[in-house]
């Protein structure tokens, strides 16, 4: 493999492939969300655009694209403009270290297989956590720059919530990292060849799911955008493409946390035990597991009522953090034994 292919063409191809897939998934995740919740509430959901409303997200996207971009009169224009960008860039950058397989030849396009991840950093998991912590600023600054009371309240709530839940989220991932003995995402998946980590790390797994829902501001922890009290939370004043950016960031973050859960607890691209005879390609297994998580997100939203804010903070600091610390002690005890 010569230099141009190895260092320029191949990374570009991988980046394009990953981002295309992510954006497509995000687009149809909005459709899936409306459909799933509609069926759970015995409704039909979007039905007008295309067969079964399948083209609805494209119509929505076009509408947002053509909509007038309103900037509130006393808004801080620079911050108002930069906030959606700060929200979406970290969400997309996280996909840099998400592996969708061990090695890939891009369906036989390449002669020799290449690693199925854009960059196999040796700080993979830490990188995702570090990058995704920047996403908070998009929400907080967007809320402040709108110069309006509901967005500010939503932004403050959301920042406090995300900072609080980042701690148990990180601590929950320490367990799998200790068992895999590496931070690299590929390394963690390969360490699960014999036993998926969600069995020994069941405590961390459950805490991770709860914190992931809170970290992405989804129901039942969607206090930052609680419609009944805060109109639409931090993005009340946003419209057009800037609003679309916030929306995209939220859904991209959902995919990121699902992908981390799949990598750290559910064996990434490895086939499901007792189903190996299906001989599906690795990325299909990966997509199936991530898809199951995404469905879980929608299911939880359709099932549970919203938490009260003080309850949310109390459960984060007084329950989840001690639980993850206990989990780390137990893991260390069994690893050292």
């Amino acid at each position: 493999m010569d230099f141009t292919t190895a260092y320029i063409l191949l990374p570009t191809a991988k980046i394009l492939a990953v981002f295309l897939v992510v954006l497509l998934v995000v687009l149809f995740l909005t459709y899936a969300e409306r459909k799933v919740i509609a069926f759970m509430q015995v409704r039909l959901g979007p039905m007008r655009v295309g067969p079964y409303g399948i083209l609805q997200p494209i119509a929505d996207g076009l509408k947002l694209f053509l909509k007038e971009d309103i900037i509130p009169l006393k808004a801080d224009k620079f911050v108002y403009w930069i906030a959606p960008t700060i929200a979406i860039v970290p969400a997309l950058l996280s996909f840099l270290v998400v592996p969708w397989g061990n090695e890939t030849t891009f369906f036989g396009l390449l002669k020799e297989p290449t690693s199925a991840v854009i960059a196999d950093l040796n700080i993979g998991i830490l990188y995702i956590l570090a990058i995704s912590s920047i996403g908070i600023y998009g929400i907080l600054l967007g809320g402040w720059a709108s110069n309006s009371k509901y967005p500010l309240l939503g932004g403050l709530r959301s920042a406090a919530q995300m900072v609080s839940y980042e701690v148990p989220l990180t601590l929950a991932l320490v367990g799998p990292v200790m068992m895999a003995n590496t931070l690299s995402t590929r390394g963690i998946v390969e360490a699960q060849k014999h036993l998926w980590f969600f069995i020994p790390q069941i405590l961390a797994f459950l805490v991770y799911i709860a914190c992931a829902v809170a970290e992405t501001n989804r129901a039942p922890y969607d206090l930052p955008e609680a419609e009944t009290e805060l109109v639409a939370g931090f993005h009340t004043e946003y419209s057009g493409m800037k609003f679309a950016f916030f929306y995209l960031a939220e859904y991209a973050n959902m995919i990121v946390v699902s992908a981390i859960a799949t990598i750290c607890f559910l064996g990434g691209w490895l086939p499901i035990p007792y189903l190996e005879f299906l001989h599906l390609p690795p990325f299909v297994w990966f997509a199936l597991k991530v898809g199951a998580f995404l469905f879980g997100f929608l299911w939880i939203r359709a099932t549970y009522p919203r938490y009260r804010y003080d309850q949310l903070m109390a459960i984060g600091w007084k329950f989840f953090i001690p639980l993850t610390l206990i989990n780390i002690f137990i893991t260390a005890f069994f690893l050292l034994k």
């Binding site: 570090a130 990058i131 908070i136 907080l140 900072v163 980042e166």
Partner: peptide, 13 residues
């Protein structure tokens, strides 16, 4: 990564 986690994730918030 620690710089990002500590500063961007904690101190500047």
């Amino acid at each position: 990564a620690v710089q990002l986690l500590v500063y961007a994730g904690g101190i500047i918030v």
